[in-house]
Amino acid sequence: MTTFKKTISAIALAGVSIVAVAAGVQAAEKRPAELAPLGEPPSPPDNPMTPEKVELGKLLFFDPRLSGNGAMPCSACHLPELGWDFPDKISLGYPGTVHWRNSPTIVNSAYYGNLFWTGVSKSLEAEARTAARGGVAGNGEDDMMEARLAFIPEYRERFNDVFGTEYPLMRDAYMAIAAFERSIVQRDTPFDLYMLGDDDALSDQQKRGMELFTGKAGCSTCHDGALISNQKYYNLGVPAYDGWEDDELAQITFRFELYAKGSTEEKYRKWKDDPGLYFVTKQEADLGKFRVPSLRYTKYTAPYMHNGMLETLEDVVEFYNQGGGTNDWAATKTDLIKPLGLTDKEKADLVAFVESFSGERLLMETPDLPEYEPLPAVTN
């Protein structure tokens, strides 16, 4: 008996209609090969996830004591009720400063190979450390933050249970925060349900949008796979952040970042736009390039792009429909973007499909944080 016949016989013995199976196979073949549903989030062997570690990371994520001034938790820029990001063009900055880039959502960040807009951190552990210590973000120092944690009995107990240390270490704090962030995933979106076989999970409009996404609009050239991102870097011609024209603090932050990340005197004086990936590679071919973000959960994460210059998903679709924009880095703009010639109906269909990458809002209340107490007296 052939393998095919054996398979059919097994299905029949299981009481499953062969016609139904054939219909299911036929339906599955309609799914676009460029896209896929999300699988289980990774759990790195050097930082395995446990319920206790995730719960500790949750407390630390919301705890403002992990910052320079004791008032800037991770959640200040990643608000659960507002998309797990910050609802403005530019993220919240450390008091006395402003940030200089849009705050990405942490939803599904477990699946990224490179974190931040220019991939400067290669893991969520490194991302947590970079954010907590960044000059216009958390502005913290490990020794000061460790000292604060040492005065909190519940943290001493939790760190000892999870990591086996007598006192909390920031190295372990970043690992716990990363474990918590890996738990913030969404895998039951209409898109995922459709890709797993539910023909009714997408509306007719969304299915038309899917055809555009993988066809005429060419979105899946860069937004593919299960993450809906190839995680590569491109200059799309996104215009410079308009706050640099009239916001004094934003101008100071921009100059600070140019200086801190390394640029010549000439470039420091001349550049008026975010150099992007150039800061990582120092290759002028990478000027203005930023990582392709996932389109998952984007229904709740407006505004869009690395500097928030596009306000709505409709604006994003129109931006691509026009062939991108113009900025100071015209020489490096990708040739993948060309005018699309989409009709108003097609643009609406495309937006509807992009919204299918988002399910219900993922909400979470701020946990009650443990209190300081005096360290126990040392006895001989």
Rank of each mutant, 00 (worst) to 15 (best):
residue 1 M to K: 14
residue 2 T to D: 13
residue 6 K to I: 12
residue 14 A to S: 15
residue 15 G to F: 12
residue 18 I to Q: 05
residue 21 V to F: 10
residue 22 A to F: 15
residue 24 G to D: 10
residue 32 P to H: 01
residue 40 E to T: 14
residue 42 P to A: 10
residue 42 P to E: 08
residue 45 P to I: 12
residue 46 D to Y: 06
residue 47 N to F: 06
residue 49 M to Y: 11
residue 61 F to P: 11
residue 61 F to L: 13
residue 62 F to C: 13
residue 67 S to T: 13
residue 72 M to F: 15
residue 76 A to W: 01
residue 77 C to D: 01
residue 82 L to H: 02
residue 82 L to W: 00
residue 83 G to N: 04
residue 83 G to W: 05
residue 84 W to K: 02
residue 84 W to C: 05
residue 91 S to Q: 10
residue 92 L to V: 08
residue 96 G to N: 07
residue 99 H to I: 01
residue 102 N to P: 08
residue 102 N to F: 05
residue 103 S to Y: 00
residue 107 V to C: 03
residue 112 Y to F: 14
residue 115 L to V: 06
residue 117 W to Q: 10
residue 123 S to Y: 03
residue 124 L to Q: 02
residue 136 V to D: 15
residue 139 N to V: 10
residue 142 D to M: 14
residue 150 A to L: 12
residue 154 E to H: 02
residue 157 E to T: 13
residue 157 E to N: 06
residue 158 R to P: 06
residue 161 D to W: 01
residue 166 E to K: 15
residue 168 P to W: 05
residue 169 L to F: 06
residue 172 D to V: 06
residue 174 Y to L: 11
residue 175 M to F: 09
residue 176 A to M: 10
residue 177 I to T: 07
residue 178 A to H: 00
residue 178 A to L: 00
residue 182 R to I: 07
residue 185 V to Q: 05
residue 189 T to V: 11
residue 193 L to W: 00
residue 193 L to A: 10
residue 193 L to F: 02
residue 194 Y to A: 02
residue 199 D to A: 10
residue 208 R to Y: 03
residue 213 F to N: 05
residue 218 G to A: 03
residue 226 A to H: 09
residue 230 N to G: 01
residue 230 N to A: 02
residue 240 A to K: 07
residue 242 D to Q: 12
residue 242 D to E: 14
residue 243 G to K: 07
residue 243 G to H: 07
residue 245 E to Q: 15
residue 246 D to E: 09
residue 248 E to G: 01
residue 251 Q to K: 15
residue 252 I to H: 06
residue 252 I to V: 11
residue 254 F to D: 10
residue 254 F to Q: 12
residue 257 E to H: 11
residue 259 Y to V: 09
residue 259 Y to K: 14
residue 260 A to K: 14
residue 266 E to L: 15
residue 266 E to F: 15
residue 269 R to M: 09
residue 274 D to A: 12
residue 275 P to T: 05
residue 285 A to E: 15
residue 286 D to M: 08
residue 288 G to D: 04
residue 288 G to K: 07
residue 291 R to K: 15
residue 291 R to P: 06
residue 293 P to E: 11
residue 294 S to D: 11
residue 298 T to F: 00
residue 304 Y to W: 06
residue 308 G to H: 05
residue 308 G to K: 04
residue 316 V to D: 00
residue 317 V to N: 01
residue 317 V to H: 04
residue 319 F to W: 08
residue 321 N to R: 12
residue 323 G to P: 08
residue 328 D to W: 09
residue 338 K to F: 03
residue 340 L to H: 06
residue 342 L to P: 04
residue 349 D to H: 13
residue 351 V to D: 08
residue 356 S to Y: 05
residue 364 M to I: 05
residue 367 P to D: 04
residue 370 P to A: 00
residue 372 Y to E: 02
residue 378 V to D: 03
residue 378 V to R: 09
